[in-house]
Design a protein around this nucleic acid. Structure first.
Length: 586
RNA sequence: GCCGAUGUAGUUCAGUGGUAGAACAUUCCCUUGGUAAGGGAAAGGUCGAGGGUUCGAUUCUCUCCAUCGGCUCCA
């Protein structure tokens, strides 16, 4: 029995073989198995391929599979390999990087591919109904935008037709909980071109959702020893020059506001005199550093934990924008912790605890959150700020606390920020894409550039350690993922509308108002439409409101309500007091 | 930014080389109802934007814009 991974990888070879048979002059890139399927990169040269070509390719693959040809492994010395792949420039590039002795290829009929395996023995082991070729896109050779863009063809593959169909069905279901779709259906937010792409407009229901989350956030930060700070949306160019953003981050920043003339003068194209430039902040850090540097600091005052829900603006490339998960204006739930070396470990631990607490509070199972320890690229040390000693210490202390906190993390070399190592927490969206949310980062850059100091217990000036951290990452992204996580059916405490009162007929409207008055501490409304009860129930269910209170003549006479809980049948008739007690509403 | 796809009413979608239709939503009227759609009427669209071809373009074509899926990048 073959591993599905192996089948997927073998299918990638068959895809390449099919392309070779269909298009001849194509150059091969690479073709690995991936989650749920496989892909292969091709350079089609001058000829083009479009989406409509995919069925033809799939058909050719099935034809090849039915030939029952075997996968033969071939060991090749380097020179031999270069001969075999004579005109395949991408393959030759890969061969150059391999050591002699490691080079193997697999032969499937006439098709030979550079590959270390493993593979299935024969194409007959593949179920022709278990896969489909469904997508294509561009992809840079070796993942670098400096290289040529190849055409990547994707397939999804499973052991058999049933599993494939189950997967496709699952993806269709997943699309129903897409936050962009639910955002519209539940009237939470929208974006539009006239306002600006990547800039989110939060509707009343989205606004209250945000507010509830934000209130929770403030409360928990105050409980956890943070102080709150508040900083502006724009800052003088000089600040961003000093922080290094002007130099290193300029392609992600909105261009400067010219503040030497009025808008009127600008429109008249008047000459600018004595101009100052201000930039929209892409990060809050330099402002927090400025607060720190505004007065001399003592070791006794550390750690300082300064939190701010700071709205930042980044000029993301158009093709990178996506719903709430990737936008141009977003609010980070930011905090900076400035501390002594001997405090670093405890601070890290408490941030990790805080992060885990947040996930628990919003119903995310820790196993659904992937953790990454992002380290320096050891072969490319010169591109990082700070010194070896600092990096060695911070990388090892991050690893230590992550281990002690039993985080199931993956180490990734070369993924650190230029200014320091970090621990990243990523959540998958409905389409399986990972989005970085919580992050815990060291910064060697700003303390140095802004010459941050404190006086230690020996009376000497010392540079503090600076940690950046965000729990949600950004409100936008986190709420987007939260919408998908709950499929829009938020728990009671988060629901924009918690309770809807539905009078059966117009004779109960007054009573419905009395009921509403009794529970006005909750977020509720009354559906007074002159519609059938069925219609109004349907509407409330589609809006995913947790509790529906139906009041008719009977309830009015008894001083009760008929309760319907979201997604369930009736809970029955009861008094308001009973409902609150039974359902533990607060 | 790059590769591919898509763009018709608020939403989901039909449709056509002779200037557009449905359902739901909206407004009004009738209905006052008992747990997922009661009935009727009205209103709503420079068919993404701008060029080109044509007697005539929403339809064909080009450019641009936006959205979606990837790539790169990222909270």
């Amino acid at each position: 029995m073959n591993d599905i991974e192996t089948i997927r990888h073998s299918l990638a070879h068959i895809l390449a073989a099919a392309i070779k048979e269909l298009y001849g002059e194509v150059k091969l890139g690479v073709g690995p198995a991936i989650e749920n399927g496989f892909y292969y990169d091709f350079d089609f040269g001058d000829s083009q391929i479009v989406l409509d070509d995919l069925p033809k390719i799939e058909k050719k693959m099935k034809e090849i599979i039915k030939r029952n040809i075997s996968f033969e492994k071939i060991d090749l010395p380097k020179d031999e390999a270069k001969k075999v792949f004579g005109s395949e420039n991408y393959k030759l590039e890969l061969i150059e990087e391999l050591n002699d002795g490691e080079i193997t290829a697999y032969k499937t009929g006439e098709f030979v591919d550079l590959c270390k395996g493993p593979h299935i023995n024969n194409t007959s082991e593949i179920n022709v109904d278990g896969f489909t070729i469904n997508r294509m896109s561009g992809a840079y050779w070796k993942g670098s935008e400096k290289n040529k863009m190849l055409t990547r063809i994707y397939g999804v593959a499973f052991a058999n037709k049933e599993e494939l169909e189950k997967y496709l069905e699952m993806m269709k279901e997943a699309e129903k909980r897409d936050h962009r779709k639910l955002g519209r259906e539940l009237d939470l937010f929208h974006t539009e071109e006239e306002v600006g792409i990547g800039l989110v407009l939060w509707h009343p229901k989205g606004g209250i959702l945000w507010r509830v989350i934000e209130d929770f956030w403030y409360k928990k930060h105050l409980e956890n020893g943070y102080d709150l700070v508040r900083t502006p949306h724009i800052g003088n160019r000089k600040l961003w020059e000093r922080s290094g953003h002007w130099g290193f981050y300029s392609d992600s920043m909105y261009p400067p506001l010219e503040v030497g003339q009025s808008l009127e003068e600008l429109k008249n194209k008047d000459e600018v005199k004595d101009s100052e430039q201000f930039l929209l902040k892409p990060m809050n850090c330099p402002f927090h550093v400025a607060i720190y540097n505004s007065s001399p600091r003592s070791y006794r005052g550390l750690p300082m934990r300064w939190a701010e829900t700071g709205t930042v603006y980044r000029f993301e490339k158009k093709g990178e924008l996506s719903g709430l998960t990737r936008v141009r204006g977003f609010t980070q739930d930011d905090a900076h912790i400035i501390c002594r070396k001997d405090q670093v470990e405890d601070e890290l631990k408490s941030v990790i605890d805080f992060i885990l607490f947040i996930y628990q509070s919003f119903g995310f199972d820790p196993s659904s959150v992937n953790v990454y320890l992002s380290l320096r690229d050891p072969n490319n040390k010169e591109k990082y700020a700070g010194n070896d000693e600092g990096w060695d210490f911070t990388e090892s202390v991050l690893r230590k606390v992550a281990t002690e906190k039993n985080l199931n993390f993956k180490e990734e070399e070369g993924e650190a920020a230029f200014y320091g190592p970090k621990l990243d927490f990523k959540i998958k969206d409905v389409l399986g894409r990972e989005w970085q949310c919580s992050t815990l980062q060291f910064d060697f850059n700003l303390p140095e550039r802004f010459d941050m100091k404190f006086t230690n217990d020996k009376g000497e000036k010392e540079q503090p350690y600076m940690l950046h951290r965000a729990l949600f990452g950004s409100f936008e992204r986190f709420i987007g993922l939260l919408i998908e996580h709950y499929a829009g059916a938020f728990p009671f405490w988060l629901s924009p509308t918690q309770i809807r009162v539905i009078p059966v007929g117009e004779n109960q409207i007054e009573y419905a108002k009395e009921v509403a008055e009794k529970i006005k501490s909750f977020r509720l409304d009354i559906d007074m439409d002159s519609q059938t009860i069925g219609k109004k129930i349907r509407e409330a269910e589609m809006q995913k409101i947790p509790y529906i209170l139906v009041v008719g003549e009977k309830e009015k006479a008894n001083g009760t309500v008929s309760v319907r809980k979201r997604g369930q049948q009736e809970l029955g008739e009861m008094t308001i007091e009973k409902l609150i007690e039974q359902e533990k509403l607060a």
